[in-house]
Design a protein around this nucleic acid. Sequence first.
DNA 1: TTTAGACCGCTATATTCTAGCATTCAGAGC
DNA 2: GCTCTGAATGCTAGAATATAGCGGTCTAAA
Lengths: 151, 151
Amino acid sequence: MGQTAHEHGTTAVFASVEKACRERGLRLTPLRRQVLELILQAGGPVKAYDLLDSLKTSHHSAAPPTVYRALDFLLENHFIHRLETRNAYVSCFHPEASHSGQFLICEQCDQVTEINAPEMTQGVLKAAAEQGFKPSKEVVEVYGTCRKCIE
Amino acid sequence: MGQTAHEHGTTAVFASVEKACRERGLRLTPLRRQVLELILQAGGPVKAYDLLDSLKTSHHSAAPPTVYRALDFLLENHFIHRLETRNAYVSCFHPEASHSGQFLICEQCDQVTEINAPEMTQGVLKAAAEQGFKPSKEVVEVYGTCRKCIE
DNA sequence: TTTAGACCGCTATATTCTAGCATTCAGAGC
DNA sequence: GCTCTGAATGCTAGAATATAGCGGTCTAAA
Ligand SMILES: [Zn+2]
Ligand SMILES: [Zn+2]
Ligand SMILES: [Zn+2]
Ligand SMILES: [Zn+2]
């Protein structure tokens, strides 16, 4: 049951993020809010410099640190994920629980789906345990062809 | 059974790569050979620009494309892997078989171990199948603490 | 109201990677 | 051997991604 934040409803995600900020005493400043909005609206992976360009239209003083600091905040608090293989950022569709993201990335249409695959996590844990390795974070990005593009 | 190319013996890896090149009609030119040597000697993840600096000492004309083209060759033919989360390159300890790499990365000592965890791959395949997604390549990089650093 | 820390504006710079074009070289066919 | 072709390399430039650092401003707590 993978889904994108877009399908999940950006308003719902937004509400969830706001709630989390209130509860954890985090400051969802206008800048951070706007960057999150832009990512949600995109409905897919967005590049930092594309965010910067968007920001600039309404925020003349925006510079790289403007965007990267907002992204850092959103990443640290697990409101978005970074796609390591693409240098891109996607919203998290269930920001309540802290987790590493697992992604299916279609090489045909570039659609990205965040999944929650416990078997995969179990496999990671088992393999790590055999090495005496204590995992703290897993990066899983699977490339291939999505259902739509197979048809 | 994780191991680094270093532990596996750089000469053995080298022999294996040379064999593969002969069989597949690939040209392991001096430049490519030297870059592979540098990666093997490093015994861990190496950055492209560190390779470039090393190359420059013996090869005055070396420039970024010099390194990146050699890396591309080694990557395409599965003689090395790229660590996506670190923009770094590591040698593959069994370059005979083509495969996506799976890595355990220690946050304390930066040691990287390539593992081969079928359960993990199975988990990926199962999760992908549920989405109707046909995987072609998986990127798995697990961060945590290695056995040595736990002690 | 003071104050410490978080946040932001701004400039500069670091880091990673690629485009493009000319030259050289290796191997295939003659 | 000679020629041709595609692969490999030399070289310059520049794109894309990310960070350092410093001073000013705002916020929330004491
Ligand atoms: Zn998520
Ligand atoms: Zn697709
Ligand atoms: Zn490998
Ligand atoms: Zn360690």
